[in-house]
């Protein structure tokens, strides 16, 4: 072995000290960002993505309007400082365009676009830091930003990456693991258990696939719990702030009194 980093050591720990099925720490920030109708910053470990949603609004290009439903427009922008070595990627980069179109086709059946004919929903994704699981972070962030913008959706979409190291399955891979291990990204809808997206860029043994797929589905449900909690927290604070002319803020006042 020598200097090579072990993906999974004898004790069953991964390179960053996680167990096989442990997900990285996530943080969700649903605060207002500028003029966006809805926005979310989601962090999976060291991967951080900012998603801003504008719309539904009048389509800027007439050619893009669809007469019976809204058009979802996804633009992904990878910050030059997001990776280890500084690299400026052009907007026309094929890999980035592909992520954008994958996200678009994932959300088209979930968002109730038929309610907004001739409109456009713009999703702007900015990748601030990457450490593996880029697509998963983008999808989870987009779900949260769309919810935050009050855009009707059938369900959450929760995405997780899974991989296989020899015979043992791993979840939520870092860049280091993604480079070494065949991996698959699964996006699922927790209410029905339906799968919104399965994508794989490497070769994976067919006998391993089922296990990974099932695990990723379960991990999606765990993520859903966290995302739901964040959304409910945000909603209830806003509702309380609106109805606070009496109860909500008074409570804060009481706390201050106690401190004094």
């Amino acid at each position: 072995m020598g200097s090579r980093v072990e993906i999974l050591n004898d004790g069953g720990y991964r390179s960053d000290g996680r167990r096989q099925f442990e997900l990285r720490d996530i943080t969700i920030n649903l605060a207002q960002q500028g003029q966006a109708d809805g926005s979310a910053v989601i962090t999976h470990g060291l991967t951080q993505v900012l998603v801003s949603v504008f719309g539904p609004r009048e389509a800027k290009m007439r050619s893009q309007t669809i007469h019976d439903r809204a058009n979802i427009n996804v633009e992904v922008n990878v910050a030059a400082f997001s990776t280890g070595e500084r690299r400026k990627r052009s907007r026309g980069d094929k890999r980035i365009l592909e992520i954008g179109s994958t996200i678009k086709s994932t959300f088209e059946p979930v968002v109730q676009t038929t309610l907004y004919p001739r409109s456009q929903i713009d999703v702007y994704i900015t990748v601030l830091q990457q450490d593996g699981g880029l697509l998963q972070a983008c999808i989870n962030g987009t779900t949260l930003a769309l919810t935050n913008a009050g855009i009707p959706m059938a369900d959450f979409v929760c995405a997780v990456t899974g991989g296989v190291h020899s015979t043992s399955a791993l979840l939520d891979l870092t860049t280091l693991e993604e480079n070494d291990v065949p991996h698959v990204t699964v996006a699922m809808m927790p209410k029905t258990g339906k799968v919104a997206l399965v994508t794989m860029e490497t070769r994976l043994h067919v006998e391993r696939f089922e296990e990974i797929f099932r695990l990723a589905g379960e991990a999606g449900k765990v993520l859903h719990k966290e995302m739901k909690k964040a959304v409910m927290g945000r909603t209830s604070t806003l509702v309380n702030a609106m109805g606070s002319r009496g109860s909500g803020v008074d409570r804060d006042g009481d706390e201050q009194m106690n401190e004094l």
């Binding site: 960053d16 442990e22 920030n29 979840l171 695990l215 765990v222 702030a241």
Partner: peptide, 21 residues
Amino acid sequence: ISFSSFPATREYAEFSGPHHP
């Protein structure tokens, strides 16, 4: 399946703050 737990930094009470598991 669970989250790798890091020590919690501080309690975010405000709605603008991020949310940690």
